[in-house]
């Protein structure tokens, strides 16, 4: 589904991603792990179009993505979250999510064709997703009133509502309490059962072991190892890269 071929990216003197290649299979959960500064978020940015590679190619469903604008990649089916929540901070939860769900709302002339029945269905779809992830909050409240944990659920809801084939979650459970972490484990497995393809960034080995089919370990911008979690987390090289950072 997604293929990175020899991707490199530097910022000034910092080589954030170095000759990085990997592939993601349809209907799988892949965990991207590695110490802070390994280049994981940069990989997300390169795939979603927030920045462009200096070298190498990115393919999504066999279509070359290089230099496509962000919104076109989203329309091809790439949906993502951010390591630190980013929201439309002056709008309600509901409006934030409606923007993710609607596909033609950036067309000015479409606003004259409003259908009340469709609006109602959209709202129901949003309440369904909030229910599914367990985001219990009045949808009319301003989005900045969400607690940290609720923000993480909101991020997931928005990424799910944005029409997609492929989900990228940047540290969806960083800093959340153990109960919510378990909720996320369950949610991710349910999503996979529904046919989703997910790439997520996460430090916690136990979490990754539980949810991921494949683990990709990055260190200093390159892929250090790749394989199933049991094998990867017994690998000496990997443990070395990890030790002192998260274990």
């Amino acid at each position: 589904m997604l293929k990175l071929q020899n991707i490199s990216k530097s910022f000034g003197g910092v080589q954030a991603v170095k000759n990085c290649s990997f592939e993601i299979e349809k209907n799988s959960i892949t965990a991207l792990v590695g110490p802070n500064g390994a280049g994981k978020t940069t990989v997300f940015n390169l795939v979603s179009g927030f920045s462009n590679p200096d070298k190498g190619d990115i393919f999504f469903e066999n279509k070359k993505l290089n230099h496509l604008p962000i919104w076109k990649r989203s329309r091809l089916g790439i949906s993502r979250t951010f390591q630190l929540s980013r929201m439309f901070r002056n709008l309600s939860i509901e409006d934030n999510l409606l923007i993710a769900l609607r596909e033609d709302d950036d067309k000015f002339l479409k606003m004259f064709l409003r259908d009340v029945e469709g609006d109602k269905q959209e709202k129901n779809r949003i309440y369904e997703i909030m229910d599914f992830v367990g985001l219990k909050k009045d949808p009319k409240t301003i989005v900045t009133d969400l607690s940290y944990g609720q923000q993480k659920l909101f991020d997931l809801s928005r990424a799910l509502l944005n029409s997609h084939e492929f989900l990228m979650l940047d540290e969806p459970v960083a800093g959340v309490n153990p109960i919510l972490r378990d909720t996320f484990k369950k949610l991710l497995k349910e999503l996979k059962a529904k046919g989703e393809t997910i790439l997520l960034i996460e430090h916690d080995m136990d979490f990754v072991r539980h949810v991921a089919d494949t683990v990709i370990v990055m260190d200093q911008g390159s892929v250090l190892a790749e394989g199933d979690p049991e094998y990867i987390f017994s690998d000496k090289k990997v443990l070395e890269a990890y030790l002192g950072t998260t274990v």
């Binding site: 962000i70 919104w71 993710a100 609607r102 606003m111």
Partner: peptide, 23 residues
């Protein structure tokens, strides 16, 4: 309108609006 909502999204975070498929 929904279009107006997109304008407000652009004001608050245009990159996120774009990542949700908005031109």
């Amino acid at each position: 309108s929904p279009f107006g909502r997109v304008l407000e999204a652009i004001r608050d975070d245009e990159q996120v609006a774009e990542s949700l498929g908005k031109n």
